[in-house]
Amino acid sequence: MLVLPALFDEANKMRRFTVQVMRALDDLGVDSFLPDLPGCNESLVPLDNLSLEDLRVAASAAAEAFGATEVLTIRTGALLAPPSLPTWQYAPQTGAKLLRSMLRARLIASREAGRAETQEQLLEEGRKSGLMLAGWPIGAAMFQELETAVPSASATQHVIAQSQVGGGGLWLRAEPSHDQTQADALAQIIAANDRVDT
């Protein structure tokens, strides 16, 4: 199983949880791999020149390299899922909502710092030349793609909603956190259905 992590700020918040899910999957006999996406984590590629499509290509290449037969995406990781593989989308999120949260964070921070910025200005600047959002340099191409990107709804994609996992989504936490109970629940949903499928 290829694991495609949440993007940007949410990646930080979901990092430990993602690994917890992978350990729980391993206990249930499912092998999984978590690649560092280009421009993220320890990747040396500068993020500001990357497009969402670049990340999609990398995700597909990773699926092939690992010989993945299925995919688990976390939040906006769903935007990157290779269309041909059976995919579990955990709490999928659209690019527009991700962008909205990051823009909003920047506006709130600017206001606190006494800088006058408006959403219109930021949108225009982001589309034209990219923006630094929540510490992530989002290039113009990435910015424009995020505005319209939605998780695939093809027949190969299965959504696991937070309500199935129980508790509050960890991406909401102000401080990065983890939750073994949720990780076990998510892994069990996947493993149980994998057994039915095969």
Partner: peptide, 10 residues
């Protein structure tokens, strides 16, 4: 912080 508040509002 600002990111947490943004998430809260969303």
């Amino acid at each position: 912080d600002s990111m947490a508040v943004a998430g809260l509002l969303t």
